[in-house]
Design a protein around this nucleic acid. Structure first.
Lengths: 113, 113
DNA sequence: TCCTATGTTCGATCTGCGTCGTACTGTTCG
DNA sequence: CGAACAGTACGACGCAGATCGAACATAGGA
């Protein structure tokens, strides 16, 4: 089938979202998608995220994020394109994506000497 | 020592908070504390949360939540009292606690048969 | 002083899940 | 048709972390 199913945003629970975002790799992928802004394929995301993991692992993480209602998938010829469900997530969990924008503490904490 | 240290809310990262809230038991404990409203001891929380786990497990979860900046601990004679750092968390991550108020899907998913 | 109640810490166990490799599906191009 | 590419499905492996029990610490009351 060419159709890609996604859960209606109303049926998404915060529990599932939290579990999905608890993994550092998935959090990086989400941030990369947020930075990309629009549709991006797997290799684009990996380059943007700066992580090097197997493609089956990427597929696994994408699946988890999709089932958590966070990302959307579209078929484009030979490849799949992914994007953040920005409006849906913002409507369902206002402020969540804003929290994620603050990236991980680069080089440990920014210790105020 | 009678002093209980807590991380300044500015130093708390969303990564740590997400990891802390990803566990179903900890999420239940946080919801119980939110329902309690004010300071509650371990047995109070367990009763409010309706879970039956060993006290060492509770101690472990409380530690994780405290290090994530979510709860505060105070010594009261023979026992420790815990409470949600509501204002701090709301200031640092606006909207987060509101998302958590929506409790878990009672009786599994609301299957649309 | 001794006993009880509340938490913490430590060690051991065990399950969940993140990761990888391989095989498979589907699409595009030569 | 056949080769190459993008992603998925599945099985296996290993590790992080959730849980428990026991020992310890501390405060309060008999």
């Amino acid at each position: 089938m060419t159709e890609v199913i996604e859960p209606p945003i109303e049926t998404v629970t915060i529990d599932v979202v939290l579990s999905a975002l608890a993994d550092p790799v998935r959090l990086t992928l989400v941030r990369a998608l947020a930075a990309a802004g629009d549709w991006a394929c797997g290799s684009d995301i990996l380059r943007e995220a700066g992580v090097t993991i197997g493609k089956s692992t990427v597929s696994h993480h994408v699946k988890v994020l999709r089932e958590a209602g966070l990302i959307s998938t579209r078929v484009d010829g030979i490849r799949r394109l992914f994007t953040l469900r920005y409006d849906d997530v913002e409507q369902r969990f206002p402020g969540l994506l804003t929290m994620l924008r603050e990236r991980a503490p680069a080089g440990a904490a920014a210790e105020r000497s």
